[in-house]
Design a protein around this nucleic acid. Structure first.
Lengths: 151, 151
DNA sequence: GGGAAATAGGACTAAAATAGTCCTGTAAGG
DNA sequence: CCTTACAGGACTATTTTAGTCCTATTTCCC
């Protein structure tokens, strides 16, 4: 059981690759796919979703490709994850009152909310910039909002 | 994207229903399925997994059924979740060194480990006994080991 | 300007995971 | 010892995930 699916992992890797290069540079899918070892067609489809979410901008035709739409420091991992695999919910009941008829009485829900918020907070603390820095091995690594007791 | 799948949710509900009754009582699948609104055949299959993990014991034939194998206070939600949906891994790379060729260089992995440990710690803190108590609305609810900043 | 080539768009297909059904085997009780 | 109530587990259906391939657009070269 994995929280982060293949395509989300690809997205994170592809975007941080791009973030490690000068702002505004246009990348072809082929280049990024080769650099990060991702099936080309699949990556193209992933970029389509990212484009609709205004995370990248597209340029068609020869010499076209994709570029980051915003400053890498302004794009969070949470945004990327939710763009690719939809709203984060530890359990179905956290998607809304209608998802479970026991919504009112189930007290376990409170617990689910807690871990979900921890997860989201972590993803909020990770930006494309921090990911790109990691690729170069800058000191410190990701510490962000990881709960203290799990460090 | 949900971390807890349907069958795991069913297992948690069925087991806490059983934990809310006298220890040693044998339940037929039909009874629990009706009480918790779970498809009978599906629940039976879930119980099979739980039986192999020594969480319940089975009795075949008429007047047979399933009973909790252990004290409800000794069975954690973590155990149940892992029995039903396998090892918990935020990302594929946390399943082992072989799952990703970048294992050594990827520094994001450290972050994944942090949130995963938080999640597992929460599940460790929840037992069948605490779940059953919740069903009766005992005060306090689940607070367990939820990270402080997410309360 | 027109056509070849490089590129993204998006419909389509394949594979895997998940959810659920149904026939078979076992044991209790009359 | 036969009927019946139950779990075992093979099987099927559905949904999700992953991946491919044909179509449309734009540039650049002639």
């Amino acid at each position: 059981m994995e929280f982060i699916r293949r395509n989300t992992d690809y997205a994170l890797r592809a975007l941080s690759y791009m973030a490690a290069h000068p702002v505004g540079k246009i990348f072809s899918v082929a280049e990024v796919a080769q650099a990060e070892q991702i099936p080309q067609g699949f990556l193209r489809k992933i970029f389509q979703k990212l484009a609709r979410a205004d995370i990248v901008v597209t340029h068609r035709g020869p010499r076209g490709g994709f570029a980051l739409a915003r400053d890498p420091g302004d794009v969070t991992a949470r945004e990327i994850v939710e763009t690719i695999q939809g709203p984060i919910a530890v359990n179905r009941c956290l998607l809304g009152r209608d998802a479970c008829e026991r919504w009112d009485t189930c007290r376990l829900r409170t617990g689910w909310i807690g871990i979900q918020e921890g997860f989201v907070a972590f993803l909020e603390g990770v930006t494309l910039k921090s990911l790109a820095d990691l690729q170069y091995g800058s000191p410190g690594g990701i510490t962000g909002t990881v709960p203290p007791e799990s460090r």
